[in-house]
């Protein structure tokens, strides 16, 4: 999970991502940040996330991102 937090902090260093369950509605990230996040996650974990899965629900909090990455077999521990 620390790797995900590091990536998120790299995009929006001003926010504490452990303190939100809804990054989008809390204004932590917008749709463009999600695109940047996808690119960073793909690079970090060596995966390709399907375009159909790039939806807010999969990036709205740490658990959602972790669940998505697990589907691709990413080693997030």
């Amino acid at each position: 999970m620390d790797k995900i937090i590091d990536i998120l902090k790299g995009i929006r260093p001003e926010f504490d991502f452990t303190a939100s369950d809804d990054f989008i509605n809390d204004g932590f990230i917008d749709s463009f940040d999600i695109v940047t996040l996808v690119a960073a996650l793909e690079k970090q974990f060596g995966i390709k996330i399907k375009g159909t899965e790039i939806v807010p629900e999969n990036f709205c909090n740490l658990n959602a991102i972790a669940a998505l990455l697990k589907k691709y077999g990413a080693a997030i521990a």
Binding site: G27, D30, S31, F32, I34, K50, G51, T52, I54, V55, P56
Partner: peptide, 25 residues
Amino acid sequence: DRDGNRRSLDNLVMKGREVFHFVQT
């Protein structure tokens, strides 16, 4: 808008997230 973009009703507006999802699906 909530993402800080400034436009008027005379301008083109694109709901980027919806467009992306539309294309991918």
